[in-house]
Design a protein around this nucleic acid. Sequence first.
DNA 1: GTCTATAAAATGATAGAC
DNA 2: GTCTATCATTTTATAGAC
Lengths: 198, 198
Amino acid sequence: MARRRGSHSDITGPKIREAALRLIAQHGCAAVSMRKIAEDVGLQVGALYNYTPDKQSLLFDLMETHMVDLLAELGKLPALDGPIEQLDQFVRFHITYHLPRRDEVFVSYMELRNLSPENFERIQALRSQYEGALEAILEAGEASDDFTFTDRHITTLSIIAQLTGITNWYREDGRLTIDEVATIYCDLIQRSVASAQA
Amino acid sequence: MARRRGSHSDITGPKIREAALRLIAQHGCAAVSMRKIAEDVGLQVGALYNYTPDKQSLLFDLMETHMVDLLAELGKLPALDGPIEQLDQFVRFHITYHLPRRDEVFVSYMELRNLSPENFERIQALRSQYEGALEAILEAGEASDDFTFTDRHITTLSIIAQLTGITNWYREDGRLTIDEVATIYCDLIQRSVASAQA
DNA sequence: GTCTATAAAATGATAGAC
DNA sequence: GTCTATCATTTTATAGAC
């Protein structure tokens, strides 16, 4: 087997993170050894420790990157006027961003319990930021009488769970495109919060 | 340390399953060793193998028991006439059954990937049965013009995800009782499927 | 039914050669 | 930056005494 020597840190780093993400999403963090990750990349175990101080940091890096990227993309959305349009935009954004990133979603939701307390808090803070964006839309809609609900915060969490659950069943080769799924959920969610029509 | 000797299989069995359920829910299956489970119960490792042939069977047993119990309880619900009442009943049942069983829910949703293919199929079959119960209600509501939606099956999965997500944030000592949560979700979900009023 | 002891393999992480 | 080699633990599971 040919061995590559020399400096590869700019390409090896991402390859390690990709492999770790895929393997951890598939089997769970504790079930994936550093050896398996190294083998998947084509390295020996020891080499991994040039890229991460330990396994915990690698896991945290994956989750933090996902949340930071998510928030960055959310921030790039054009500002819309009405809460109804904003809600549609958020729902479509959530679905189109998450569905092609199933591994990231799996890891970010299932491996929270394997984070150290400090790392857990940092991820939770990012997650709260994201939830806050949706909650602000619901609040605006409440103020404008477009939306009505019993409890704004719970409605926020309910919608996020509803949307994130899609990653558990959606298949790229299934009968629906991502856009079609988004349309279905826009309808479901708009109806669940819409004020009664006069 | 005092040692108990003799036959305890009728009490030790459940204790092992309880400990395994709690520890696996907390840390994930691969992160919990048979030693930790034994220690939690107050046994030595070897003794566990009187109750389960291996770790995989123990995990499967926990998940299968949860699903079978869930379906049994669902089957005990009184038959109601209208789809609207049936939907309320299902939503309330799901919430009141699942919220006091967070560990079972966690394990049943997060450890699917650690099951062998055959065991996975058996759990999926039970889960489909449960989803089918909700889908039948939605179908009845469609037929009676009480409900309207773009896609019945996706609406089913969406509602289940929405409901199951509650276990991720609900706290017994929080500001809402289980009944209050159920009422909020009945409202959200009924509105999301209700046909437009004449 | 539980214990002790052990086998055989795998694990996270480090040291030092190249 | 990667390799080889190694350490100290821990792992699942089994065997046999009591």
